[in-house]
Simulated scan of single mutants.
Amino acid sequence: MKILVTLILSILTTSLAVAQYNFEPTTENPFGQPHPDAPQQLKDFEPMIGICDCKSMSRMPDGSWSDAVDMQWTFKYIMNGMAVQDETLKADGKHSGSIRQFIADSSKWYVHYYSSNAPSLVLPTWEGKKKDGAIVLYRNQKSPNGIDGFYRLTFYDMTKTGYKWIGEWVSKDESIEYPTWKIDCARKI
């Protein structure tokens, strides 16, 4: 009898452990899946889940745009489908990534960014939400001449075949916009 009880408990424990991680990446779902208990906004990033080949361009000090840098951008569900993580691998060796969590109490996305080019003890955080078909995120930042404003990140033109992204400094009232970085992505996987 003791052996039967031990066997049943072992099977139940194993079944619970497997079920506990049903939304992590697997062979069938290499980028994970959204957890059914996650906020519905988790699906805001659904068009980006997978791998895209991208072209990244940044603003040069003289105001012109740099040559495009080849980049691979991968998005996946993490934390058993409760959040989204992304990673960029760039041909210039400046890799980066983010962890994206939607917090229902504030109805906002919080995005924590990290980079191989500028390691940080405290990760910078952007916050925002999806509006008018775009995901728009903000972080306080002064302009080079000291004007209060934000660094705004926007994902737009999001489809199953790719998406676009732009990073720009904007004034507090958003009447002044100065793009400094843009990325165009085409679906690979």
Results as ranks from 00 to 15, higher is better:
K2A: 12
I3K: 12
V5I: 14
T6M: 12
L9K: 11
L9Y: 06
S10P: 10
S15G: 10
V18W: 13
Q20P: 10
E24K: 13
T26Q: 07
T26A: 09
T27Y: 14
E28D: 14
E28K: 06
E28P: 04
N29R: 05
F31M: 08
Q33W: 06
Q33N: 07
P34Y: 05
P34L: 07
H35V: 05
P36T: 09
D37C: 13
D37E: 15
Q40H: 11
L42M: 06
D44V: 03
D44C: 04
F45A: 05
E46H: 11
P47F: 01
G50A: 12
C54R: 00
C54I: 00
K55R: 10
S56Y: 06
S56R: 09
M57W: 02
M57P: 04
M57S: 09
R59V: 00
M60Q: 10
M60A: 10
D62E: 02
D62S: 01
S64D: 15
S64K: 08
D67H: 04
A68V: 10
D70H: 08
M71T: 09
W73Y: 13
F75Q: 02
F75M: 05
F75N: 04
F75D: 03
Y77I: 03
M79H: 05
N80R: 10
G81V: 08
G81M: 12
V84D: 01
V84R: 03
Q85E: 15
Q85H: 09
D86S: 02
E87K: 02
K94V: 13
H95T: 11
S96D: 04
R100D: 06
Q101S: 13
I103W: 06
I103G: 10
I103H: 12
A104G: 09
D105N: 11
S107M: 12
K108I: 10
K108S: 14
H112P: 05
Y113L: 00
N117C: 14
P119Y: 01
L121D: 15
V122R: 07
L123C: 03
L123D: 04
P124L: 00
T125I: 13
W126Y: 05
W126K: 00
E127P: 04
K129V: 08
K131G: 08
G133H: 02
A134N: 14
A134W: 04
A134H: 08
A134P: 09
I135W: 01
V136P: 01
V136T: 04
N140V: 09
Q141K: 14
Q141M: 13
K142A: 11
S143V: 08
P144F: 08
P144H: 08
P144Q: 08
G146N: 03
I147A: 12
G149H: 03
Y151N: 15
L153N: 09
T154F: 06
T154A: 14
D157A: 15
M158W: 03
M158K: 04
W165K: 02
W165Y: 12
E168K: 15
E168P: 12
S171M: 04
S171I: 05
K172R: 09
D173H: 05
S175W: 09
S175I: 07
S175Q: 10
I176V: 13
Y178R: 12
P179L: 03
P179M: 02
K182Y: 02
K182D: 01
K182M: 03
D184C: 15
D184F: 15
D184V: 15
A186V: 14
